[in-house]
Design a protein around this nucleic acid. Sequence first.
DNA 1: TATTGTTATACTCTATAACTATA
DNA 2: TATAGTTATAGAGTATAACAATA
Lengths: 137, 137
Amino acid sequence: MLHDRLGFLLKHAQLELTERTTSALAPLGINGRELAVLTVLGAGEALAQQQAAGRLAIDRTTMVDLIDALERKGLVERRPDPADRRRNLVHLTPGGRTVLDSGERIYRTAEGEFVAALDAGEAAQLKELLRRVLGLD
Amino acid sequence: MLHDRLGFLLKHAQLELTERTTSALAPLGINGRELAVLTVLGAGEALAQQQAAGRLAIDRTTMVDLIDALERKGLVERRPDPADRRRNLVHLTPGGRTVLDSGERIYRTAEGEFVAALDAGEAAQLKELLRRVLGLD
DNA sequence: TATTGTTATACTCTATAACTATA
DNA sequence: TATAGTTATAGAGTATAACAATA
């Protein structure tokens, strides 16, 4: 059957988590991917686009559009790296920092609700399978 | 950080599992999605396309192309349902049954190797997180 | 009227190749 | 010559709308 297939369950677990985090973050005007970008950018020193892409395992051509969107929303700023003018260092704006902080809280809450939901309904099968397949019984 | 985010880990776990199953199944000329379709079709009575789509939580318009591909490979056959001629009942061919049987074995092996790999390398973080987040300690 | 399969279309995410400006 | 960012393009996977045949 299907419901003991890890591929099927991982796919639908991810779909449901994405749905939950997307609607939870919507009031901030961002989605989970954009929050992830803000998270790596806000972790320490400003990063070049490719550095941020590397940490997220995202292609550099995909990162261009992500930064475009965040810049349009006023959450980040591209500034040429004085030490290597091929690079853009991407800085969080004050607004970006605010959105990052509340976005992190919202994301954690949504993640926790998703995990709690695993205990009920159809999704219990995912937890069951993970428990068995990971040998955690 | 990123590596304790369930969304990030689920995504990359799925990517790696897909990669493993895709290359393991390649000698059979099918991928994991097509094996899943063969699995629901081979489970019991022949199903109409929408019934199969429903069990896989796949859109009926997507199912059309999936059945097209499997039919071109000679693994399934559409036959009009005599009881309701709007429907196609999709039957496994003998070749389709053979591919399903060995595909299932191959899939299970790949799944097991994926889980084993979780114990080593970077992916250990996934197992750690799942263990913690699912409260399985 | 409603439903099954189908086609056309579009949107998202991703990746490859080629361009520009720098190094 | 190599690299960072960019653009154009194409490939999956998905979904919506509309159509023909059938109920």
